[in-house]
């Protein structure tokens, strides 16, 4: 039996002639926090819809707790909690009423439902506003309530579909803290976003999708290793001197490329630490005075650009 909490095998979904999800396979183990990254239109939301049964796959399968879902009413759906991209809330009702409704649809009732609602609201810091209509909430508060609804039935796996869209920095940070707290509680998280910094903060594994396909599925560290070609070093020199010093620099084992222009030496190195040491020693050997030094380590953004040739925010 598959020990994964959630796994997909060759998952495929087509809309007409367009293939939105093309043979996607991955597995998420209990307690993992996985980031699903990709630009708009990469197939992230369609994948989430397939995982939750909102869409029927044209090919492949989704296994939840080792078995495929048997239908709309499969009780194992309670293992899932979805935070949709949209604010799926009833604005005319209070937070409490919203939670009561969605909780009841999850099968909660009576004191268990009341306690779950109280706990979820407390977790996202909205306990004191539970009797207020949602339409009186700020955008950030609505986002937090959106998260609370998904937590109501204490799901094992939380699917967060771009949960910070349109949120101010303060509320975004509050949501991050909530998600980090959920990780500490041992919840499994699949976090969809096109913000690299969110994945770097919240996840320990990253799946990058583009054009409906997985192009990378790796740990955060492993992924950064793939971006070595973008380790950069910038050295400012005091003077311009003729000679063979530039050829010497280019010949260093850690240096992949070097360009000099207007007192600035731009280098691409295999490893920042080794490259810095070698380059500074070489320049000193040639009697050059260094007035400034800057390093640039690859971000996921760089990795994505390297892998796809596009930035994440390309549509």
């Amino acid at each position: 039996m598959d020990p994964s909490l959630l796994s997909t095998r060759q998952l495929t979904k087509r809309f007409g002639t367009r293939t939105a999800v093309d043979g996607v396979s991955f597995a998420i183990q209990p307690g993992e926090a996985v980031g699903l990254l990709g630009p708009n239109g990469a197939g992230k939301t369609t994948t989430i819809s397939l995982l939750t049964g909102l869409l029927h796959a044209d090919g492949g399968e989704v296994l939840l707790d080792g078995r495929p879902l048997t239908g709309d009413t499969d009780p194992r759906k309670r293992l899932l909690g979805l935070v949709p991209q949209e604010l799926a809330l009833y604005e005319e009702l209070t937070a409490r009423d919203n939670l009561a409704y969605f909780g009841a649809l999850q099968g909660l009732r009576g004191p268990a439902l009341s306690e779950a609602a109280r706990s979820a609201l407390g977790f996202v810091g909205l306990a004191d506003r539970e009797r207020d209509k949602v339409k009186t909430y700020s955008g950030g508060m609505k986002r937090r309530l959106n998260l609370a609804v998904a937590l109501l039935h204490d799901p094992q796996l939380l699917l967060l579909d771009e949960p910070t869209v349109g949120v101010d920095p303060q509320s975004r940070n509050a949501i991050f803290e909530n998600i980090e707290a959920l990780r500490r509680r041992g919840k499994t998280i699949l976090y969809t976003t096109h913000y690299m910094e969110e994945v770097e903060r919240l996840c320990d594994r990253v799946i990058i999708m583009d054009h409906g396909r997985i192009i990378v599925d790796d740990s955060l560290a492993g992924l950064k290793q793939r971006g070595t070609s973008v380790n950069r070093l910038r050295v400012e020199l005091a003077e311009v001197r003729e000679g063979t010093w530039l050829e010497s620099v280019r010949a260093l084992s850690a240096v992949r490329a070097a360009e000099f222009d207007a007192l600035t030496l731009e280098l691409t190195v295999a490893d920042i630490a080794r490259g810095t040491t070698e380059v500074l020693a070489c320049l000193q050997h040639h009697g050059l005075t260094v007035t400034g030094l800057a390093t640039h380590q690859p971000s996921l953004e760089d990795v994505f650009l390297q892998l796809t040739g596009r930035t994440l925010r390309d549509v």
Binding site: L54, D74, P75, K77, L82, P84, E86, A88, F102, V149
Partner: peptide, 13 residues
């Protein structure tokens, strides 16, 4: 508005 997405995740026929 995406409400069906939330409803469909529940074990609701």
């Amino acid at each position: 508005a995406g409400m069906f997405r939330r409803l469909r995740v529940a074990p609701l026929g």
